[in-house]
Design a protein around this nucleic acid. Sequence first.
DNA 1: TGTACATCAGTGAACGCGCGTTCACTGATGTAC
DNA 2: TGTACATCAGTGAACGCGCGTTCACTGATGTAC
Lengths: 204, 204
Amino acid sequence: MTKLEKPHHHGDLREALVIAGIELMEENGVDALTLRKCAARAGVSHAAPAHHFKGIASLKIAIMARGHSFFATAIAKEMTRTPPDPMAQLQAVCQGYLVFANRHNPLFQLMFNSSNTDLSTITPAVAAEFLQNAHESYGLLKQACEPFENAPGAANSTEITVWSLVHGFAMLFNKDSSRAAPTGPIPEFAKILAGLELRIKPGL
Amino acid sequence: MTKLEKPHHHGDLREALVIAGIELMEENGVDALTLRKCAARAGVSHAAPAHHFKGIASLKIAIMARGHSFFATAIAKEMTRTPPDPMAQLQAVCQGYLVFANRHNPLFQLMFNSSNTDLSTITPAVAAEFLQNAHESYGLLKQACEPFENAPGAANSTEITVWSLVHGFAMLFNKDSSRAAPTGPIPEFAKILAGLELRIKPGL
DNA sequence: TGTACATCAGTGAACGCGCGTTCACTGATGTAC
DNA sequence: TGTACATCAGTGAACGCGCGTTCACTGATGTAC
């Protein structure tokens, strides 16, 4: 059988559907993600996905899981090419965060749109994969916040602050977004983060 | 004509459609917003809206404009019942921001979903109303940031920082959201904001 | 004050579209013997 | 090694659904005279 002949079995349709869904979104926005389009892009009839996903919601969660995997990779990549200084590492995490949100904006929107996170109708394995991958990307941010002091009387506050700050910045000032600041130029995120004047924990 | 008889003319269908759309979303999520459902809720045939809106996109923008009006009101309300101390005022703005995002979550999501902000197919008057109202709510936040110093070499940084912070916090930790922090308790936003240690501009 | 008429703002039927899902089917694969 | 058979993973047709939009229409309103 040559490559030109189309086999009855796809090989790894599940994987192909996830990738197709991501590509579809990146080309035409979040709303372009439908079962039928994913199937078409994977070169398969639109009834085929039913053998791999319980329904469109299930495919969405699988895509979100994959997204978080990419997300963690993007963040880790910035960290590894940055010296192990705490502030530099934290800047690197945020840089990875913003680069991902910018390059994969529709996927990013999907991942953080809570209305998609309806675990009830999902295969437990798919739900577990999603939660694990989301935990992985968050873990990198948490780890980078570890060396810094929290605000008085506020456990976790550095994580919460940095996550909120970088997430809000990504949502509001993403280059691709049509929502620009209604005022003046937007300072680079590095200056914004430096403005927090985070302090290293004593003894580190 | 008694109130029980249905008049041929609605009275103010445009207004009724905007309100119907907001109510629909608040009850059933952003995806529940359709022309046909809005018309039905306003007690009118589904062809009637065409006399008031160019299309569904136009209605969406009108709803977003109305949302920003409510948003500004919610923020202003918190400000007026708070003493004129700069930090207290800034906390009040954020309080209003978070209360609105929590109480009107689907509307809030719609308002800040940039993929809806496609001004090209919209009646100029509707687009202008949206921009003006969005500017109004942003103006309150900007005003409350005015007394504080910016980070060195970063004009606007206080606005950008506070807006990103409160917006990200609203997106990530909104009570109604199923996206809870994957770690520990979430400190109150007031503590997070206080942790920024913003400084009043000298001479104020 | 009354009448003719233009305009406005509804109705209801119909259109085509893309969607998710179901179903009987069939070709390909893998396994037992 | 060969054969029978169960299981897997596709196909293609069909289903009903809700959607936005269009259209001829009609009742209500407002205005000119």
